[in-house]
Design a protein around this nucleic acid. Sequence first.
DNA 1: GTGCATGTTACGAG
DNA 2: ACTCGTAACATGCA
Length: 242
Amino acid sequence: MPEGPSILFLKDQLLAFKGNSVQKAGGYGPMPTRWLKGKTLKDIDTWGKHLLLLFDGGAVRIHLGLFGDVLISERKKVNRSFYLEFANGEMNGYVVNAIKLTKQLKEIYDWRTDILSKQFDKAYIRILLQQKAVKTIDDVLMDQNVFTGVGNKIRNEALYRAGIHPQSIIGKIPPAKITSLINEVVKYAKIFYNQLKRTGVNDKFQVYQKEYAADGSAVTMKVLKKSKRKIFFSEHRQKLYV
DNA sequence: GTGCATGTTACGAG
DNA sequence: ACTCGTAACATGCA
């Protein structure tokens, strides 16, 4: 279910529980749920694909992985891996990974890399990219410590919109194109998020899983060796820098 | 039944 | 110590 925008969208829905106290917590996952009972949900934050529920004395980090799903005051037939029940409804996590964080969030997370954060810092990303100059851009776009919140859809769409071939070597991409790519990542993440808010789904693709790109050019699909994920790109429109 | 999908982590080999 | 490749973990839909 998730890329960064999906998690932000989920946070919006969960804010209905902010300020409420947990009546019951549980699930089959390894999360120690006992301490949550009676605690007040102080706030909700996100870091890319991490959903952070803030309580006194600790936070719960929820990650949806590839198959995870969270329903608000609705249930599926299968067991919940992590849930919270409040007086005004419940949060039901399926196949989600929930753990308790005891350190201060500031010590764990750097929001300068979060593509959906106000603190997102383009100049800092450029520095990180310089440190990975010999790598290909497709790999690094999915590196959560560089482009926090980017998933396979945003990766493919941002590269297409910036006109960069996924297998370009970072160090060979002209600085102006790097800037353009960083901008397109943020822009598309916002399109993704806004469409979710309006319609609940995201299907605005110019190249991802397309046969022909938005400009009419043929789309090539490749399976990445390491990650086995699929990349979609237009040879015609996306320049290969090597 | 088969294949595939918005993801990450653990571990062994090199 | 670091990087690479592979397996592992789940679900739901066509």
